[in-house]
Amino acid sequence: MATLATIISRIFTPGAGEAVARPAENPEDLYLVRAIPNDDVCLFVKDIDNTRVVRKVDQVAPKRCLKTIAGFCGAAALLILLLLPGAYSLLAGYEIQNLREKRQQLLIERAGLELEEARLTSPERLEELAKVQDFIDPAPDKIIYLPPTQGSLALNLPQQ
C-alpha cells in the first residue's frame, strides 16, 4: 500500500522503493527486520537559544536590494515605454474613428440644415410671408440708382 511517505520518496528519491523491497544483501542480516520505509529519515527537534545571536550586517545587501528594485523599475519603465506607443495609437485610433463618425454626422446635419434653409428661403415662401406682413415691391420711382459717373458710394459705416 502506498503511503504518503512512499509517494514522497518515489517522487524525490528515485530507487528508494527498491531499497525498501530489496532484502538485505548481507546474508547475516537475513533475519533482520526489513527496513521500514523512510527508516533512514531522521526527524528530531532541538531547541536552540538564539537570543544572543546578532545578525551580521551585510554591507552589500542594501545595494543589491536597491539594484534589484531599480532593475525591476527600469524593466517596468522599459516595458511601459515599449507598450505605450501601441496603447496610445490604439486609443488614438478609437478617438479618430469616433471623430470621423462625428464629422460625417455633422456633415449630414449641416446638409440637412442647408436643405431646411433653402426651403425656408424659397421665393414662394418669402412671397407668402411678405403678403402676411403687407410688404410690397418698391415702386420704380422709389428706387434711386446712384450715377456711377459721380463716384457716389453709399457706406453704412459705424458712428465715430
Binding site: S9, T13, L43, D47
Partner: peptide, 27 residues
C-alpha cells in the same frame, strides 16, 4: 528555531555513487 532535515537534503550533502550524478542534478 527548528531545523528540518529530509532525505532530499541529506542527498545534497554527498551520498551516492562516485560515477553517477547526484540525484538533484539528474532531476
Amino acid at each position: 528555531m527548528e531545523t528540518i532535515r529530509t532525505r532530499f537534503l541529506a542527498g545534497c550533502s554527498g551520498t551516492g555513487d562516485a560515477g553517477e550524478d547526484p540525484p538533484p542534478i539528474r532531476r
